[in-house]
Simulated assay, not measured.
Amino acid sequence: MTAPVRVVIADDQRMVREALHATLSRRADVGVIGEAGDGEQAVRSAVELRPDVVLMDVRMPVMTGVEATARILGEWPHPSPAPHILMLTTFDLDEYVHAALRAGATGFILKNASTEQLAGAIHDLAAGHAALSPSVTRRLVATVATLPPPPPPARADDDPSIEALTPREREVLLLVATGLSNRQIARRLGVSESSVKSSINRAMGRLNVSNRVQAALLVRGTPTLAVDGDARV
C-alpha cells in the first residue's frame, strides 16, 4: 500500500484548519501531520515536520502565504527536497495567482473546491505535477495569449510538436485550455475521467511539459488550433 501524502495545513482561521483536518483525515491516502495559524508558523512547521505538501492560505497574519512560500522554498535547510506548496484561497485574483507562482508554489486551488478536487491536487503536487483550478488555468491562458509571441527556436527539434498528438489528445488539450476540469471534459466527450487524465498525461509526455497548464499554453499558442467553447481538431 502506498504511504499517505504527508500534509501541513496553514490557515489563520481555526475553523477552516479544523474542517480541512477533519476532511482530509478521513482519507487513507492523505495524512495531516501539522497545522499553522500564520505564515511564520507555516515556515517553522514545514522545516520541522518536512511534509510532502503544505496547504497554504494566501492571506495570513505575521507573514502572508506568498511570503511564507518564498521563505520555505528559498531557504530550505535540509538535503531532502522542500515540500510542494498548494495555495488555498477564497480569492480568484490574478495578483495572488501570479505572486504565488513566482514564489514557487506549484498549485493553486479555491476553497470552494470539492474534497476530491483538493485531494487530487495534493496527490498531483506530491507526484511532481502542477495543480491549478480550472478558473486559474483559464485566466493564465488568457493572460499569456495577450503577450507577444516568443522568438522561434534555434532548431526545429527544440519546438514541441503539436503534430505528435493524437486527435483525441488535441481535443482534450483544447478543452483544458478553456479551463474545463477533467470531470467536465469527460462529460463533454462522453468518456471516463481516467481516460481524460490518461490523454492529458500522454500529451504532456509527447510535448515534453510537466503540467496541464504548460500543455494548454502550447495549444493556445498554436494558430491552427482554435481555442473557444468548442474543441476542433
Rank of each mutant, 00 (worst) to 15 (best):
His98Cys: 04
Pro4Tyr: 10
Asp94Arg: 14
Gly190Thr: 08
Ala3Leu: 15
Ala82Ser: 15
Asn182Trp: 03
Pro223Arg: 11
Arg188Cys: 07
Asp230Asn: 10
Gly31Arg: 15
Arg71Tyr: 03
Leu24Asn: 10
Val66Glu: 00
Ala46Trp: 00
Leu189Lys: 12
Arg59Gln: 14
Gln13Thr: 06
Asp158Val: 01
Leu49Arg: 15
Val144Glu: 15
Val16Cys: 06
Ser198Tyr: 05
Gly221Phe: 00
Pro153Leu: 06
Ile162Glu: 05
Arg170Lys: 14
His98Gly: 04
Val30Ser: 11
Arg183Trp: 02
Ala82Met: 02
Arg206Asn: 10
Pro160Ile: 11
His78Ser: 12
Asp157Trp: 10
Leu132Pro: 02
Ile9Gln: 01
Asp57Leu: 04
Leu207Asn: 15
Thr143Ile: 07
Asp12Phe: 05
Gly74Leu: 03
Ala216Asp: 08
Asp12Cys: 04
Val219His: 00
Thr178Tyr: 13
Thr2Asp: 12
Ser80Pro: 00
Asn201Tyr: 07
Gly120Tyr: 07
Arg220Asn: 13
Leu101Lys: 09
Arg26Lys: 12
Arg138Pro: 04
His123Ala: 11
Glu169Leu: 04
Gly120Val: 08
Ser80Gly: 13
Val16Ser: 07
Arg27Trp: 05
Ala226Val: 05
Thr178Trp: 07
Ser199Leu: 10
Val8Ile: 11
Asn112Phe: 02
Arg187Glu: 15
Thr90Ser: 12
Gly74Ile: 06
Leu165Arg: 11
Met204Thr: 12
Ser195His: 14
Ser114Lys: 12
Ile162Gly: 07
Val5Trp: 03
His78Cys: 06
Arg183Ile: 06
Ala28Gln: 15
Gly205His: 13
Thr166Val: 08
Asp12Thr: 13
His84Lys: 14
Asn112Asp: 14
Thr146Val: 09
Ala119Asn: 11
Ile162Asp: 07
Gly107Cys: 04
His21Gln: 10
Gly65Pro: 05
Ala130Ile: 02
Thr23Asp: 10
Glu75Ala: 10
Pro51Phe: 00
His21Ala: 10
Thr106Gly: 15
Gly65Glu: 04
Ala46Phe: 03
Asp230Leu: 09
Ala186Cys: 14
Glu193Arg: 15
Asn112Met: 05
Pro51Gly: 03
Arg50Trp: 08
Arg59Phe: 01
Leu132Phe: 12
Val233His: 07
Arg50Gly: 07
His129Trp: 09
Pro4Cys: 09
Val7Gln: 08
Arg183Gly: 09
Glu193Trp: 01
Leu132His: 11
Glu48Phe: 01
Leu55Thr: 09
Val7Ile: 04
Ala226Ser: 12
Leu174Thr: 11
Val7Asp: 00
Ser195Met: 10
Gln41Phe: 04
Glu48Lys: 13
Thr224Cys: 02
Leu24Val: 07
Phe91Glu: 15
Pro150Arg: 13
Ala82Tyr: 08
Thr89Tyr: 10
Asp158Glu: 13
Val5Ser: 03
Ala121Trp: 08
His84Thr: 03
Ala177Val: 06
Asp157Gly: 04
Pro160Asp: 02
Ser114Tyr: 08
Gln184Met: 14
Gly107Arg: 12
Ala100Met: 00
Val43Gln: 06
Ala145Glu: 14
Gly128Thr: 03
Ala215Ser: 01
His129Met: 05
Glu116Met: 06
Leu225Val: 04
Thr106Cys: 06
Thr69Pro: 08
Asp159Lys: 12
Ser161Ile: 00
Ala46Pro: 05
Val176Glu: 09
